[in-house]
């Protein structure tokens, strides 16, 4: 509509009322939200008025020092993200292949591996790397593995994990496609805080640092679950596996181990 009316002018009541009203509401809310309510919050530990304003605005505060209880055992100090252990190249794989010759006694390929050791072919690099770091640091202890791991350098561990990740997965020891997936594997037990195994160990999703379980020996899987449940193995970051294993029944452990061992 053609009008001579100027909209952006204080004389225009639409302009002055809407802008004034909005600004007034903002100012009132600022007073209430930044000056009044901070003092109404329990334990807000406010010093000055400026403190109150900063807290309400969301300026971060440094965490106050507190007394901490130190661990009585060695926990894993590995930083585990989806980027670990970092990019690798063919040279790294080659060096890993050489280093892996000493591992082959126990971790021989596929069917020849010993039942109490894991198959490493095709494992995600992050899974192998994390366990090697933990063995070296003493967060995970094994009479056979620890002496080997202690002598590995950081680069050795990266190379070894790159090598095993590079290899194709080997068929399991006793493949039997007929074994149905038990409830504990595909569904877990929600109220006992047991998510489905497949939500981290492949099948559904792979969590950074989690190993593949398909085709692993039942004896090895069972032994590890029992070790987690019994607090004999504690290198899982912030108890993520212990939380699960300790709530599993003996039967569920058997079922999960047997199922994964039967996978091709």
């Amino acid at each position: 509509m053609k009008t001579e009316e100027r909209l952006f002018s204080w004389r225009n009541s639409w302009f002055s009322l809407s802008l004034g009203g909005t600004a007034g509401l903002v100012v009132l809310s600022l007073i209430a939200g930044f000056l009044v309510l901070p003092y109404a919050t329990p334990n807000s530990k406010l010093g000055s008025l400026w403190d109150a304003i900063c807290s309400a605005a969301g300026v971060p505060r440094a965490t106050a020092p507190s007394e901490q209880v130190a661990p009585t055992f060695k926990t894993s100090a590995v930083v585990m993200t989806s980027q670990m252990p970092g990019p690798t190249d063919t040279r790294s794989v080659g060096r890993g292949a050489t280093l892996a010759m000493q591992c082959a006694i126990c971790h021989a390929s596929g069917r020849h591996s010993q039942p109490d050791t894991p198959n490493l072919e095709g494992q995600p690099a992050a899974a192998v790397y994390k366990q090697l770091r933990d063995f070296k640091a003493g967060a995970r202890v094994n009479a056979v593995m620890t002496p080997f791991a202690i002598n590995l350098t950081e680069q050795d561990m990266i190379d070894l994990s790159a090598y095993y990740a590079y290899l194709p997965r080997q068929p399991g020891l006793h493949p039997d496609a007929g074994v149905p997936a038990p409830a504990i594997v595909i569904r877990g037990a929600a109220m006992r805080n047991i998510p489905a195994c497949s939500s981290c160990h492949g099948g559904g999703e792979v969590k950074a640092g989690a190993p593949w379980l398909e085709g692993q020996s039942a004896i090895y899987i069972k032994a590890q679950l029992q070790a987690f449940a019994g607090e004999h193995r504690r290198n899982d970051i912030s108890e993520q596996m212990r939380n699960i294993a300790r709530r599993m029944t003996a039967q569920e452990i058997d079922e999960a181990a047997a199922y994964y061992a039967s996978r091709p």
Partner: peptide, 20 residues
């Protein structure tokens, strides 16, 4: 009442959120 930050990469290694 206020904001504090924590680094999720290392919460399990040092600081108040270590396992123990």
């Amino acid at each position: 009442a206020w904001i504090e930050t924590a680094n999720p990469r290392t919460v399990h290694i040092a600081g108040e959120f270590i396992e123990s």
